[in-house]
């Protein structure tokens, strides 16, 4: 999704730069659009299943809440001192809770702004919410950038605390 999106961006850049060809997929605009509009279903279907299960089972409240500002400050300070503990990997610390919640919200914005670009006539409320067609492209780009940032930080964290990989895959 990201790599084909970069190629679509290159066809009519919003900002003063282009992405190198090596980071893109699809070969040309038409190919990139085919990738983007095929793989969007993977994201949408996965996202819907994830959200449905999380809300239906109540996991979302157990895992991500409560978020206390006091604990957040403590966790941030511990992280800076390099002392953030991971005794119980099944419990998210406050930074994790915020990071995961924000990326979930980001993907919702990503899909909503994409829908506003793709179907700007059929979804007028969404279009207005994004500040019009042209602005929806900027929102879409910003949401993509945040997702890339999250992925990079996420990978870095797994590299620093490799034992989390197992629990991520097994779920236990």
């Amino acid at each position: 999704m990201i790599m084909s999106g970069l190629k679509i961006y290159n066809a009519s850049p919003i900002f003063d730069f282009l992405f190198p060809r090596e980071l893109t997929v699809g070969g040309w605009l038409g190919g990139a659009l085919l990738w983007h509009f095929a793989f969007m279903w993977l994201l949408v279907v996965n996202g819907l299943i994830y959200l449905t299960l999380n809300f239906y089972t109540g996991r979302v409240w157990k895992k991500f809440f409560p978020i206390s500002p006091k604990e957040l400050i403590k966790d941030v300070l511990d992280t800076l001192k390099g002392k953030l503990a991971h005794e119980d990997l099944s419990k998210y610390n406050t930074i994790q809770k915020l990071a995961y919640l924000s990326v979930i919200l980001d993907i919702v914005v990503l899909i909503a702004s994409g829908l506003a670009i793709w179907k700007s006539v059929q979804f007028p409320i969404l279009r207005d919410l994004m500040g019009g067609f042209d602005n929806a492209r900027v929102v879409h780009f910003a949401a993509m950038s945040f997702a890339v940032f999250f992925i990079l930080v996420h990978l870095l964290m797994v590299a620093l605390v490799p034992k989390t990989l197992l629990i991520m895959i097994r779920g236990k």
Partner: peptide, 10 residues
């Protein structure tokens, strides 16, 4: 009306 190009500009 707004003409929207497949490239993204309008």
């Amino acid at each position: 009306t707004r003409h929207i190009c497949v490239e993204g500009w309008s």
